[in-house]
Nucleic acid binder design. Structure first.
Lengths: 347, 347
DNA sequence: CTGTAAAGAGTAACCGGTTACAACGTCCAA
DNA sequence: TTGGACGTTGTAACCGGTTACTCTTTACAG
């Protein structure tokens, strides 16, 4: 109802017969307003259907109650989980989320960050493959910022990351403990930080525990199809292997399907392991062994750090949080060993 | 580098020795500025590391280049797909997304919408179970708004929805065509619009095609667990059934697992069908027959409509788009029938 | 040589709120 | 009665940009 564009504070003030200052004070519940005056203002608010203009408000208050979130192009699961984690914490503090769209290119990243100025109180950024120096140029040092999955050492910014190296190391260790002699790794995209760390973890574990200097590594790009491709290479190339460790679950899924087509049994002929624990993992048949990453915690932890900064604390790289993934043993590696640890099982 | 808080246009103007107006024009590339003047301004911009304050800018321009997105608490897959769809289109037009957090409660919905005022140029709202009248109170009639999965008839707002009724009808039809005599439906949450429409589609199809007046319907809530529960009821209660149509895939997944535990074979003893086509569906063993809903298109279509409105077009309920889900026949209903229609098959 | 148009640059109002400061009125003590 | 303290309300500046309008200056036609 009412006019074309919305009522402003001035309109309310006029309607209530008071000044804008008084109207503002009444609306914001500041003490120094008489009861009848406040009532008059409130009546005008109701009548005109007034809603404060958050844009204008944040200009003077120098506070937007919004945090900017800049993520790269993410595969569904990961994206939604991280946002969910952020939102969970943000919501409790009445914060809104402004999603910047940086689709790949470095240039767009800069633009996305610039567009945030004056619209957010803080920033959550996940710079996929950006040099720290460049990042420094883009970021406003006065704007509280937390990095996701990225250690920008020299910048001294707080960050939250997953211990990919450790996770890959432990998974490889587990495969070897299961009796695998020839473990093959399917790597992720070359430029990708997570992928590289996982590969290093694998290589190191193979060297230190398995005593293998140059383990076999097949290329991949985190996609299901690239996992299938690796499987074909494996089978046709006669590459000897009794276990495959894919850098993520997605590829493991493609791998398993392709192995099945080639007549190989999992885990009979070959064991398979992934990384991430996507929801699909437990539903596969056999179910997929993997390293569980609580992606949502990545987001919620980062958001909590940012909130602390907004409250005035000064956080730096020293406050970084490293999340350790958890080993989940399922069917593709032969199932959990009943070594008397876990209780509650049927005799 | 530089001072504590960022440089303003005034600072730039002073540094370049021109007025703010000229600085503004130079920065925005308006024609009426001499080359040397523009150069001087640009130099100052570089030197001071100036980035325009989007908040202030949008106040005068009356344009924020942002659309507000208000969604209920959504299960992961759905949420991320819808956002992805929206972002895809928004990004092309250089728009940003402001996520409002309305976690369930009606009161929060109102707050979320109100908080958007002055921060967005338009709104994309998915009101889960809100009465149209209430919605009318909350929404600003002057703000272009598109509804998701919601037909607010009397409000005359454009919306995008999935034809749940039609989809359920067609799926039921398909099950009957497969020879099922006793089809049981597992319903979704009572208050949920989609769930109700799907149930109606099922009931009508059973009546018109199957000649069954009161088909068996088991309660559910869209969760995996409720699907499993339904399976137990089915088996223990000796409810005669040769096919089950779950109102969504999630429940179908739980159902299948529980049926397997009970020693029932799918599709041998009993056929199973779902709705949504979540990524998991094709990976199950046997793979799940379902109605494919392109959730991302729900988002992208809505965003495209909103863009048209922002360009000045006037859209109403008459411009609604109804997305028709597609029947995907897979293993849980016995696999596609090779009835000579689809080409390209091996002889 | 003068009149005028066009282009470049400046002044100040404005977007819609918030808030420092001043003005006003009331009540009470001296 | 008067002065001071206190509490309510109004005036106006301000947040950081944009832009209508005005003032100069320069170029060019008459």
């Amino acid at each position: 109802m009412g006019g074309h564009s919305m009522a402003t504070l001035r309109d309310v003030a006029r309607e209530a017969g008071v000044s804008v200052a008084t109207a503002s004070r009444a609306i914001n519940g500041l003490g120094n307003v008489t009861a009848p005056t406040r009532a008059a203002v409130m009546a005008a608010v109701k009548k005109l259907n007034f809603v404060p203009h958050s844009g204008a408000r944040s200009l003077t208050r120098r506070k937007t109650d919004t945090v900017g979130v800049i993520l790269p192009d993410l595969f569904g699961e990961f994206f939604s989980e991280i946002i969910r984690g952020i939102d969970l914490v943000a919501h409790e503090s009445g914060m809104h989320l402004l999603l910047g769209n940086m689709h790949g290119s470095t240039h767009e990243t800069a633009a996305a960050i610039a567009a945030m100025r004056g619209r957010v109180d803080g920033l959550l950024v996940m710079p996929p493959d950006l040099k720290p120096e460049l990042l420094a140029d883009y970021l406003d040092p006065a704007l509280p910022t937390v990095l996701l999955n990225y250690d920008a050492g020299p910048l001294d910014l707080p960050f939250v990351a997953v211990d990919n190296y450790q996770g890959a190391y432990r998974m490889t260790e587990a495969l070897l403990a299961r009796g695998a002699k020839q473990v093959v790794h399917i790597a992720g995209p070359k430029h990708n930080r997570d992928a590289r760390d996982r590969q290093r973890g694998f290589t190191d574990a193979m060297a230190k525990i398995g005593g293998v200097r140059t383990p076999a590594i097949l290329p991949g790009d985190f996609s299901e199809e690239s996992g299938a491709q690796a499987a074909r290479l494996l089978v046709q190339g006669q590459l000897p292997a009794d276990a495959v460790f894919a850098a993520n679950d997605q590829m493991a899924v493609g791998l398993i399907a392709a192995l099945a087509e080639a007549g190989k049994s999992v885990p009979g002929d070959i064991m398979v392991a992934g990384f991430d624990d996507i929801p699909l993992a437990r539903h596969l048949n056999p179910s997929l062994s993997t390293m569980q990453v609580h992606i949502d915690r990545l987001g919620s932890t980062a958001m909590m750090m940012l909130l602390r900064m907004l409250r005035g604390e000064t956080l730096g790289a020293a406050n970084a949080t490293i999340l350790t993934p958890e080993l989940i043993v399922r069917g593709t590696t032969g199932g959990p060993i009943a070594d008397g640890v876990a209780g509650g099982g049927q005799p």
